[in-house]
Amino acid sequence: MFKNIPNILTLLRILLIPVFVIIFYLPWQHAAQACALVFALAAITDWFDGYLARKLEQVSALGAFLDPVADKLMVAAALILLVQQDPIPGLAIPVLVIIGREITISALREWMAEVGARATIAVSAIGKIKTAFQMTAIFLMIYRDDFFTLPMYTIGFVLLYVAVILTLWSMVMYIKAAWPSLNDQSLVEEEKNG
C-alpha cells in the first residue's frame, strides 16, 4: 500500500482534515489564510491522486473506495465550519443542498453497485465541473480576507451558489441515468427475496 502513491495522497488528504479544523479555530491573525492553504493542498492532492493512479497504473480497490470518502469528508468539514462561522440561512441552505446531494448520490451508487448497475452512473463531466466550482468557492470563503481589492469571501459565496446549481443538475443527471434500474420491479423482488 505504501508503494501506491495515489493511495498515500488520498490518506494524506484524510489526515489533513484534523489539521484543517485545528487551524480553523486557532486564535491567530493568519489562521484563515493557513487554513485555506491546507484546503488547497487537499484539493490539489485530489486531482493528483486520480491522475497518478491512471498514469502510474496504480488504480486500486482501496483507492477507488477512499478517494470519494476523502473528498466528501474534507468538503463536509469545510462547509460545516463555514456555517458555524457565519450562521445565516443564505449559507446554511446551499451547504445542506451540497451535503444532502453527496449523501443521496453515495446511497444511489451503493444501491446501483448492489444490483450490478454501477457503471450506469459513472462520474460525469458536470460532476467534475461542480467539484471545481465547489472547491474554489470553499477556498475563497475560507481565505475570507480581501485580496487587494477583490472581495474573496463574496466571490466565493457567489461561486458556492453556482456550485449548488451544478450540484442539483448533476444529481438530476445521476438519478436520470439510474432511473431505469430504480423502476425495475424485478430488482425490487430480487432485493426482497435476497
Rank of each mutant, 00 (worst) to 15 (best):
K3Q: 13
I5Y: 12
P6G: 06
N7K: 03
L9K: 04
L11I: 13
R13I: 15
L15R: 04
L15H: 09
L16V: 11
I17S: 05
Q33H: 13
A36C: 09
L37C: 12
V38H: 00
F39M: 09
A42M: 06
A42T: 07
A43H: 01
A43E: 00
I44D: 12
I44G: 04
W47L: 15
F48Q: 08
G50K: 05
G50M: 02
R54V: 08
L56S: 08
L56I: 09
E57T: 06
S60F: 02
G63P: 00
G63H: 00
A64M: 09
F65C: 06
F65Q: 09
D67S: 11
V69S: 07
A70W: 07
A70F: 11
D71G: 08
D71E: 11
K72L: 11
M74S: 11
V75I: 15
A76S: 13
A78C: 14
L79K: 04
L79P: 00
I80Q: 09
L81Q: 03
Q84N: 07
Q85C: 02
P89G: 12
G90W: 11
G90K: 02
A92R: 05
P94D: 06
V95D: 12
L96W: 07
I99P: 01
G100M: 07
G100E: 05
I103R: 05
S106H: 10
R109M: 09
W111C: 03
E114F: 07
E114S: 10
G116Q: 07
A117P: 02
A117D: 09
A119Y: 07
S124C: 05
G127A: 10
I129L: 15
K130P: 01
A132I: 06
F133Q: 12
Q134L: 10
M135V: 10
M135A: 10
M135N: 04
A137E: 02
F139A: 10
M141E: 01
M141R: 00
M141K: 02
I142T: 05
Y143Q: 00
R144W: 11
D145N: 11
D146G: 12
D146P: 14
F148V: 15
T149K: 05
T149W: 03
L150F: 09
P151R: 01
T154P: 02
I155D: 01
G156E: 01
F157S: 00
V158P: 07
V158F: 11
V162P: 01
I165P: 02
I165V: 15
T167C: 07
W169D: 04
Y174W: 10
Y174S: 02
I175Q: 06
I175W: 06
K176W: 10
A177E: 08
A178V: 04
P180Y: 07
S181H: 11
L182G: 01
N183C: 07
D184P: 05
L187R: 14
V188A: 14
E190W: 10
E191P: 06
N193P: 03
